[in-house]
Design a protein around this nucleic acid. Sequence first.
DNA 1: GAGTAAAGTGAGTAATTGCTCGTTTTCTAC
DNA 2: GTAGAAAACGAGCAATTACTCACTTTACTC
Lengths: 205, 205
Amino acid sequence: MAQRTRNAPVQSRSKETVERILDATARILEQRGYGGLTTNHVAAEAGVSVGSLYRWFADKQSLVEALRQRTNDRILAELSAAMVATAPLPSREAVGAVVNALVEQLREHAAVVGALLRESPMGTHQNVLPDVEQRLAGYVRVFVLQHAPELGDSERETRIHLAMGITLAACMRAVFDCPDGVDPERLVTMTADLLALGLTVPGPS
Amino acid sequence: MAQRTRNAPVQSRSKETVERILDATARILEQRGYGGLTTNHVAAEAGVSVGSLYRWFADKQSLVEALRQRTNDRILAELSAAMVATAPLPSREAVGAVVNALVEQLREHAAVVGALLRESPMGTHQNVLPDVEQRLAGYVRVFVLQHAPELGDSERETRIHLAMGITLAACMRAVFDCPDGVDPERLVTMTADLLALGLTVPGPS
DNA sequence: GAGTAAAGTGAGTAATTGCTCGTTTTCTAC
DNA sequence: GTAGAAAACGAGCAATTACTCACTTTACTC
């Protein structure tokens, strides 16, 4: 499988270099897409030599993977903070706050997430933001366990899986695919309404 | 812009060639992904020379685009038939039948759709199966107009857009992303239940 | 069967591009 | 100040690959 990540940078100079390379990767990915992303171009854009790029990243794919990871981590951090803040809120408000936080983060990182979603050989959102989905699922599981404790394991997990699909699809649409006539904000509140209802309703509906 | 499609084949011999090339494209796309798809390899797999391939397809992208189109059309045809057949059924049964038909078609073409979803520079499902989504949206619009005629344009279109997101996301998950503990069949019926409810409920929920 | 258009061939080319490696520069520690 | 490690450099190699084109074969038409 070969080494995915090279030795970590130790000097602050090289840490900056790594960040600059990832920033450049993001910029080029947005502009040219994955197909138009060349390591030479990334290096030039970052103001760095190709050799330096390959000192820190084993190959092109590791480079993109590192960018994906960094974006995933940043979104996850903000989302986690938002989740913690919902602790004292009632169900509907809590769900709404989390969904809003997700949309906000997707908008913040729209360019990178969109490019990875569209162009990378990494596929659908469950692969682009796996930790985010994992965290969301955990949050949602608490809801279901609280409000519908009588559900069997399979029924519960299926309901959670559907809720994840709905949440991600709706938020993605609100951010990336909103045709004329569709109000993105309304789409988000509608989704939150639906989720709050669907997650707290008892028994096999 | 250049010519996307070359002159259409007139003899039956060449029509077969075109089909064989598309079949080969599908097979290689499934196995090696978009990155591993080379025109020489496609030609060899199809038992045809590269020159023949380029006689019918302007470039590599047109080739993949043609495959996408063919798959989209095939799914659309089956789905339309299923929709027509639901005319006499009551709401819940009609929605269920359509959702089931969609899942069935996605399963039938899982390999190609999955590969296009994951690996091509075409991105999310709305780009892979645009006509299918369009047709589904039309079907759903009838429902909403019937059962919630009091809705304003924006409210109605937003609701439809959400319904499309839910439907496609749920069916995609049922087919492509069903972890242990989640029952795909149950996921589909759950989705149909939710849709039948959400599309027929009156007023801004 | 002659003439013409359609279809098919495949060796070759031109360009791209991921990545290496020998060298040079910068930093750190003693 | 100096030794050695860390970081950066960038020309160029090796391999891939999309696509062309001069030519042959097959199919229609009259």
